[in-house]
Simulated assay, not measured.
Amino acid sequence: MSNLHGLFQYPIPMKLYQKWIVSFALLLGFSYLMQWQGSALKNSFTPMGIVHLEFAQTAELFQKIVASWDVQTLRWNIAIDFLYIPIYTYFFQLTLSIFAHRHRSKLVQQMGILLKNAIFLAFFCDLAENTGMIISLMGFHASIIYILTFWLAGLKFAILGFSLIYILVSIPTLFFRTKQN
């Protein structure tokens, strides 16, 4: 661990680095768990698994997707997702904070901080989206639930996508940043 830590021009404080390693390990572990447990939700009709359900805009499509799955597997996947949400939120918050503070450009720093704060919105979107799916699974089929779930999922994925792009584009700053005078 210390060898990787030593690669950085400006080392991340050890305590923060250790938190990041733990958050990354949890993210990887739960990502694997979600994929493994949710693999039964992937079929020719829903190759992306539960993502298809998140974007089902009508009761008819929602019910058709659910009919192609084992409902107990779906319920477990949603339950695990409720544990996954704070894990990916913490990882993204921590990672975006680290990268935002390492950029020289104030604009790029502000974008990182904006995304770091937007992760909270993704957190609440995901909670609401899961709640919408649970409400629909319980038999309440109001079209507003499907529309809200669709838009909340879209907003969540947009925030996570922009955050991931920011992180990937920022990776070289950890390795190649030179000391400011």
Rank of each mutant, 00 (worst) to 15 (best):
residue 129 E to I: 00
residue 122 A to V: 05
residue 108 V to A: 09
residue 120 F to V: 12
residue 124 F to L: 14
residue 111 M to P: 04
residue 146 Y to D: 15
residue 139 G to R: 13
residue 166 Y to C: 03
residue 107 L to Y: 11
residue 100 A to Y: 06
residue 83 L to E: 10
residue 107 L to W: 11
residue 128 A to S: 15
residue 81 D to W: 03
residue 164 L to T: 14
residue 86 P to K: 12
residue 131 T to V: 14
residue 148 L to A: 14
residue 120 F to L: 15
residue 79 A to G: 15
residue 111 M to L: 14
residue 144 I to Q: 08
residue 94 L to S: 01
residue 95 T to Y: 02
residue 120 F to I: 13
residue 100 A to M: 03
residue 141 H to S: 13
residue 110 Q to G: 07
residue 115 L to G: 01
residue 114 L to C: 10
residue 162 F to R: 08
residue 159 I to Y: 03
residue 106 K to F: 14
residue 84 Y to M: 00
residue 149 T to F: 09
residue 161 G to W: 13
residue 144 I to T: 08
residue 84 Y to A: 02
residue 132 G to P: 01
residue 104 R to E: 11
residue 116 K to C: 02
residue 95 T to D: 00
residue 166 Y to N: 06
residue 82 F to I: 12
residue 145 I to Q: 08
residue 87 I to W: 06
residue 132 G to S: 14
residue 147 I to P: 05
residue 90 Y to E: 01
residue 124 F to C: 11
residue 106 K to S: 11
residue 151 W to I: 08
residue 116 K to Q: 11
residue 138 M to S: 13
residue 143 S to Y: 11
residue 82 F to K: 06
residue 102 R to A: 08
residue 83 L to Q: 09
residue 159 I to G: 06
residue 132 G to L: 13
residue 136 S to V: 00
residue 110 Q to Y: 11
residue 151 W to M: 04
residue 145 I to G: 09
residue 148 L to D: 02
residue 150 F to C: 00
residue 98 I to P: 00
residue 90 Y to W: 12
residue 166 Y to G: 01
residue 122 A to C: 07
residue 130 N to E: 09
residue 86 P to H: 07
residue 81 D to M: 06
residue 86 P to S: 12
residue 139 G to E: 12
residue 114 L to Q: 09
residue 89 T to V: 05
residue 152 L to N: 06
residue 143 S to I: 13
residue 80 I to F: 15
residue 153 A to H: 01
residue 156 K to M: 07
residue 101 H to K: 07
residue 141 H to G: 04
residue 141 H to Q: 15
residue 157 F to M: 12
residue 164 L to G: 09
residue 112 G to F: 02
residue 112 G to D: 00
residue 142 A to S: 03
residue 86 P to F: 08
residue 100 A to R: 03
residue 101 H to T: 11
residue 146 Y to E: 14
residue 110 Q to K: 12
residue 96 L to F: 01
residue 139 G to P: 03
residue 115 L to S: 05
residue 113 I to Q: 01
residue 103 H to Y: 09
residue 136 S to C: 10
residue 147 I to W: 14
residue 137 L to E: 10
residue 121 L to D: 07
residue 133 M to V: 09
residue 150 F to D: 07
residue 110 Q to W: 15
residue 93 Q to C: 08
residue 92 F to I: 03
residue 90 Y to V: 04
residue 119 I to Y: 04
